[in-house]
Nucleic acid binder design. Structure first.
Lengths: 202, 202
DNA sequence: CTTGTATTGGAACGATCATTCCAATACAAG
DNA sequence: CTTGTATTGGAATGATCGTTCCAATACAAG
């Protein structure tokens, strides 16, 4: 006794995104996804070729639904170091607000179980890390223009470093679930960045 | 037509460790493990209750086979910042020496696909990060004793930060496979630590 | 040699996997 | 109302999963 009621593609992807994020691509089953999204097998396969394509749609959706709303302020023209700090603290706060354990970052989680031969998926992950590095670098260049402490090369290296460090933050978040330890990490990271840039601590 | 030839438990775990490390717990199958280890199903199940118990043995083995040989010098009495740098560069060099892609860190990989309800596995991961933090902190305390730049609390926070950042390094390693970018990361990390500790750059 | 023990390859198990398929159904359009 | 379309729940597929089992075999001990 089927019961229709249409569900938009966006809702399907949004719910699948949460499931992939929490459980992981390999560990989650299509039955899980049917249950979590409330969309039937038939409908899912009518929109996506399979689990893999649905996952890639979720990686895309992750950028606009999870990354852009928080990282957008870092990418905005005129963003400062305080915007980076805000971005990190917002991320921690939003995961603390969840009732369950922290899922970390979908990209970091995917990275750890990435098949090296899977170039398609790798591209999504590279896009994400490039996006972070680019955003951080623009801010660092802006700050460095005031102090002139670093060369362009050093600024770029600092941005790469910051991206990689943030990956570690979200990697660790799946285990600690302690917002305070994560905030200590953010404070230390900001302190180190400020020292390197020669910026006074506010 | 079976052919015996005994294989020690250590060899079995060593080979399974490599397989789990590269492929991941969920993505690898027992058939894969039989093939990779060269040990038959019957023998594996005569020693371990199942895939999960074998994996836990591999997590143990990882500490002594992969972590101790390289991190031991950081944990050694009298270790300095240069030993931390050496530890990181050794890790990068050994993964560069592999013919295949970099597997990163088994603990980081496991973290990203950890079932939050799996307390047993979580304990192995906590042991690892605690070990790193403890090793880093001892070195930082030693350096800080010379300069007195930081409080005990700041030293502890710097050690926590370093551990988390290193998780990011190995998370990212599964994607970049570029030793130079990783070495830039290490240089930046050491530079930031030295600046924070007020240690002159050699 | 014979015997005992350890280990083998492989069959077989039920469960679950991703995927395909479809008759049954609900809703929108006419 | 009737028709058309979209979506449903669920059966069914073949593959693969982790696990169990065992007769066959090789080696060590006697």
């Amino acid at each position: 006794m089927p019961r229709p009621i249409s569900q938009s593609r966006t809702d399907l992807v949004d719910n699948a995104l949460v499931a992939f994020w929490n459980i992981g691509f390999h560990a989650i089953s299509m039955d899980d996804l049917v249950r979590e999204t409330g969309v039937s097998r038939g409908s899912i396969y009518s929109v996506f070729k399979g689990k893999r394509e649905l996952f890639h749609a979720c990686l895309d959706r992750y950028q606009e639904a999870a990354v852009t709303p928080k990282f957008g302020q870092v990418e905005a023209e005129g963003a400062r170091l305080s915007d980076i700090k805000q971005f990190l603290e917002d991320g921690i706060a939003s995961q603390e607000a969840l009732d369950g354990p922290m899922p970390g970052c979908l990209v970091v989680n995917t990275l750890a179980q990435l098949d090296p031969a899977d170039e398609d998926t790798k591209r999504y992950l590279e896009f994400h890390t490039n996006r972070l590095t680019k955003g951080f670098r623009a801010v660092f260049e802006r700050e460095n223009a005031l102090t002139g402490a670093l060369s362009d090369q050093e600024v770029a290296a600092l941005a790469e470093f910051t991206t990689t460090s943030v990956l570690g933050l979200w990697s660790n978040s799946r285990k600690i679930a302690d917002g305070d330890e994560m905030r200590r990490y953010v404070d230390m990271l900001m302190s180190l960045i400020r020292a390197k840039l020669g910026v006074e601590c506010p």
